[in-house]
């Protein structure tokens, strides 16, 4: 089951509804785990085949920082662990 990278038809990261995603550095990663007192598997996940992952070049094992607009807080930060997809 070969992974098929779909041809990007347009720059999805520039779409209004797609929040900011960025891969964080190793130091930031270490700091995050320390702050939250967690192991990587306790984070929410994102597949490496997700259009966003492909677009920003996130690889399994890396962590993606997402900054969303929020109704309650103006900006909400979330993190996701990049995982290999099932097919």
């Amino acid at each position: 089951m070969a992974k098929e990278t779909h041809k990007q038809e347009f720059e999805i990261m520039r779409h209004d509804l797609v929040p900011l995603h960025e891969v964080i550095s190793e130091e930031e990663k270490k700091q995050l785990f320390e702050d939250l007192n967690i192991t990587p598997d306790q984070l929410p996940k994102i597949m490496d085949t997700d259009p966003v992952s492909i677009s920003i070049g996130a690889k399994p094992g890396q962590i993606v920082k997402i900054v969303r607009k929020s109704h309650t807080a103006n900006e909400a930060v979330a993190y996701r662990l990049v995982v290999e997809s099932n097919d």
């Binding site: 939250l36 929410p44 930060v77 979330a78």
Partner: peptide
Amino acid sequence: QIIQFKYGED
């Protein structure tokens, strides 16, 4: 497992 990083985001 983390569901929200801050309760209700704020």
